[in-house]
Design a protein around this nucleic acid. Structure first.
Lengths: 212, 212, 212, 212
DNA sequence: CATGAATGAGAATTCATTCAT
DNA sequence: AATGAATGAATTCTCATTCAT
């Protein structure tokens, strides 16, 4: 699993400046949490599982995070930040080969992000029914994706048919869920095949039958 | 919320022939469970919440289900059955107006099913990380949808471009997740607008630019 | 399993005169209880197990017994009565062949009684730690056996050595526990071999080396 | 009550190396359990009773044992071990005064072991009807006693009469049950009187009338 | 910084007993 | 005389969090 982007850390850790050893422990905990959330889901994940995997103790866990939820929020904050960044990076889409290539590369980035963070995203969905705040944050990220896609669609001439908002929702849905199915192994599509297909479908969808 | 299709009942209840009173209690429990799973998610749902909503007692719950998980499995069995039925009912798709209408109506059925059962489906996803068996069942349902779509796509002439398997995966993903976002209120699209849009996108996608 | 001696029945049943059908139901319940106590022990025995084996319902159970404990007390009363009778029947013991034969036959009766009722006796022991009343009753039965044995020993001339009270306790202990081990299958001794051996040991013990 | 031999501890505790504090807590729990099993029997014993007596919490209990049954099995393992040791220590028995003395001392050890562990042994009997595994272990211990006694009997010249196997079973039965009656107070025999009597009976039994 | 031990509120589940028919 | 359904108090077990070293 690739190195996690630096985490802000939970309350207790935020107050302190971490030394190298501390930073290493923190990072071990964060990565362990992602793994455990993957294997068991957020609710079923036990602090015990996390600390065992991170090869540390309960006491230490609470040195870095004020609670299990605090750790989770830190992870969600990471994902949110990464996703916003990614949404903002959505390239302008042209009907040319280059437009396709750029779209394809962007989808690859999305896929990779999803692969690393999907346990967090899944847990996020779990918790949507409970925490209004987290649900709101999730909705914001989703809207940002839709908004950016709509913006890019509006740049296209001639404008594709239909309500761009709902169309963008549909496209984001497709990308997100197909990535999910692939990443968790519910379907046997590998990264390249899936990213290719998604890029193709989106490109065709945006420019009608006019294939690159 | 529409009436739930009759549930087979959990282990303890399966063995017995229920009288009218028993059947009513069982049905109250099932509906209450869907509601509670919706509000709190599967893990956070308390048997206590369910029996309170069903206006009965703990003891009674275990008269009908051997555990919370047993109830959940009964619900999953219901969803699985309904989804299989729905997948098998996917109509042949023509490029004509009628083909579009039939597709649209089918998507409406999907949406309604999703609206009723989404708490179960969400919990199903939660549990995929834990129960290999449930995950497998979920994968089967998904594959059935993809398979049926591929079958229908193969009937189309001239054949649409691209790998039909991956394209079908993408389309099913889109429909599923967009319905989810709409049903749980993460986006503000209502049933008619969403079903319209999905039908349109799918129809265009399958027949290229040749619009009805 | 042989037919149980008529049980007085629990409180609710005692008040009523039972018709043939009722008597049959009562008897089924009593025999079922013995079987279930055997398989699971008193505490682990469920009223549900008993009524299922007796092929009747919970409601019916409480028509005949006011509680699970009531049923148990009825059984204990049966055993107590049988054991007292048996104790009183302990024959005079002579050093002759006939004395041995009578003793042997009496031990056979003990063994058979034990075989039928051992689940009750075992449960009785379980409950001794809890119910002072049942413990007292058990002690009384035990003392009765000891007392009778002592009485018979006192008739012997010349008197055997040692404190007859403690010796009688030891002998009763031997007979009881060896029967138990045999009946529950902890050892592979069958009825005839065991009864033979016990009779022999007792006879030799009482008359020193002077064997029949 | 004498100090309990060190217990291996239940599953959760077995994996860990305990520090002095932990070892003390474990030992408190074990002793408390024996006491509570004594007062209420295994089934009626509540984990709550045990932790209260051990002056600790529920959570702590499950830190050392995975369940009430786990604790019980740990205790049974202790008893089993002690009993095997004791069986192996059965001295050679001579017809002389010394043989009697050694036998008497050994019976004293048996009695003391019984006094400490009888709640466990009693519960063991309770559970024989349920756990085939525990029943088997109990049978093994019993057979070990019988076997050792037979071995010692075979050394005697001239050989005592009768089938040594069944005779040994009867003798072990006597010793066990008489100790039980005495220890739980069902009869009023004290340690010295009982051990004396048992030693006498056994000695006479083994050597016929040839008294020391 | 780190940790092993302890905690106790909270949840699932059981089952003797009662009730309505 | 019988029964299926319902009950809820009692019990076991879990696990996030705190504490003492």
């Amino acid at each position: 699993m690739s190195e996690a982007p630096s985490t802000g850390g939970g309350e207790p850790a935020q107050a302190r400046q971490l030394r190298p050893q501390g930073r290493r422990t923190l990072s071990r905990l964060v990565e362990a949490a992602i793994t455990v959330f993957d294997q068991r889901g957020y609710h079923a994940a036990r602090v015990d599982d996390i600390v065992k995997l991170a090869d540390t103790s309960h006491g230490t866990f609470y040195l870095y995070f004020s609670s299990k939820e605090d750790l989770f929020r830190a992870l969600v904050a990471d994902v949110t930040e990464e996703m916003r960044q990614l949404a903002d990076d959505l390239p302008a889409i042209t009907s040319k080969r280059q437009g396709y290539e750029e779209l394809r590369e962007w989808l690859g980035r999305f896929y990779d992000l999803y692969r690393h963070y999907h346990p967090v995203i899944r847990a996020w969905t779990e918790s949507n029914s409970q925490s209004a705040e987290l649900a709101r944050e999730g909705a914001l990220v989703l809207r940002r994706f839709i908004h950016q896609l709509v913006r890019r669609v509006r740049e296209i001439e001639p404008a594709p048919v239909g309500d761009p908002e709902v169309a963008a929702l549909a496209m984001v849905s497709m990308v997100e869920r197909a990535s999910f199915y692939s990443v968790v192994g519910l379907v046997a599509a590998d990264r390249e095949a899936l990213v290719d297909a998604l890029a193709g479908i989106l490109h065709v969808g945006l420019f009608g039958g006019r294939r690159r």
